[in-house]
Design a protein around this nucleic acid. Structure first.
Lengths: 109, 109
DNA sequence: CCAGGTGTTCGATGAATGGCGAACACCGAG
DNA sequence: CTCGGTGTTCGCCATTCATCGAACACCTGG
């Protein structure tokens, strides 16, 4: 019945199309998540593991933030060996919330 | 020294230009405030008093939400007799956060 | 197989947020 | 002036949220 071999449980994703506006706004309203999204926007897809971001929180909190970002349709994750690589869902998110991503990326604040 | 006559203290406003993105996003991420903004968007300027909105909270909470909306540069208020009339700061907010207002107004969710 | 690195999950905790009623302040109508 | 309506402020309470350390699971390199 198993689709693939005996790998660890894949992360649960939500497609931007299914995301309510409030969820997207709330996800982007947090300082740490904003850091992650911006840093991720400046890196090629699938080049950043979760632990590679320069954020002022520890692993547990970081893991929680990635859960929120997945639920908001902002981040996609894939397991690569021991690491979990990330990708910003630019196109899909832009299609669902036009201009929103640009808005938070073009900020210094 | 008084600018006008002996009126009650005017509400404190923040211009959208001075509003950090996080503040704007957080303000719009609340269900009640979203109701207010949407209802306000469907009414002409200065035609809606605070108490005239169909929201599921009482006066005290409502007053709090308007405080948040003012701080986020979303709403402007003016005293007219005993009532406090409201206006959605469409132009200014749009200039500061292009597309954001349209995004939350074009939603059914 | 073992060790080290990566990430998740599980309570616990403290802070922030949103809600309420009550009390107060202000205005216009009578 | 008194009253009813409008809105703010003040405690107080409940819920949510971000954070942590510790324990666990998984993968890779030796």
């Amino acid at each position: 019945m198993a689709e693939e071999s005996c790998h660890r449980v894949a992360p649960v994703h939500t497609h931007p199309e299914q995301v309510p506006v409030r969820t997207a706004l709330a996800a982007l309203a947090d300082p740490v998540r904003l850091l992650i999204v911006r840093e991720l926007a400046g890196s090629p897809d699938w080049t950043r593991a979760c632990g590679s971001f320069r954020v002022p929180v520890r692993k547990a909190a970081l893991s929680h933030h990635f859960q929120v970002l997945r639920s908001a349709g902002l981040v996609e994750q894939r397991d690569e060996g021991a690491k979990r690589l990330n990708r910003l869902r630019r196109e899909e998110f832009e299609a669902r919330f036009p201009g929103l991503l640009d808005l938070v990326l073009r900020e210094d604040d």
